[in-house]
């Protein structure tokens, strides 16, 4: 039930775009709603993170994919889980939506990431509930490519334009 709820939020979020309410439909993220906001420090000290966070995740990426190491504090799933903010409804706001954690600096620094063309931008359950899948499929079947594109554009960090999936 609870898991369904999360899935519904997640699906609802994605489909919110479909009913063309835009990313903002997830609601304004609430200041201080991320786990990280209640914590003292990041997985490394803050200056280090500012300068080297990408090396950290990229290293993690390689050792997870090639060596199977999952016991770590620097997985990309972990960054998202701790840093993602929530709206008034408690829905997670995509980590790369404009103004959100992984987007703000990158927009400023004109860095474009392709990570989120594959990686989920909100924490999702490991197995979506089957009932919800029907709903997803029903919607996905009618998913207009343009909407998909808009969704990606909205989710892509920063305003810098990039073709999704690269």
């Amino acid at each position: 039930m609870i898991r369904n709820k999360v899935m519904r939020l997640f699906v609802g979020f994605a489909l919110g775009l479909f009913v063309s309410l835009g990313v903002a439909q997830a609601g304004e993220a609430i200041e201080g709603s991320a786990k990280a906001d209640k914590l003292e420090s990041c997985v490394r000290d803050t200056p280090f993170m500012r300068r080297n966070h990408f090396e950290l995740i990229e290293h993690q990426r390689d050792i997870t994919v090639h060596e199977g190491i999952r016991k770590t504090d620097s997985s990309i799933a972990g960054c998202i889980d701790c840093h993602v903010r929530r709206d008034a409804e408690g829905q997670p706001v995509p980590i790369n939506a404009p103004g959100e954690f992984c987007a703000t600096c990158h927009t400023r620094a004109a860095v474009t990431l392709d990570c989120f063309s594959c990686h989920a931008t909100v924490p999702t359950p490991i197995n979506p509930a089957p009932e919800l899948l029907e709903e997803v499929k029903a919607h996905a079947a009618g998913m207009d490519p343009e909407i998909i594109e808009k969704a990606h554009a909205g989710m892509e960090s920063g305003s810098a334009k990039q073709v999704t999936g690269n």
């Binding site: 594959c118 990686h119 989920a120 999702t124 490991i126 490519p145």
Partner: peptide
């Protein structure tokens, strides 16, 4: 394009 993504 993959719109709905799972963390795992």
């Amino acid at each position: 394009n993959v719109l709905l993504k799972s963390t795992a």
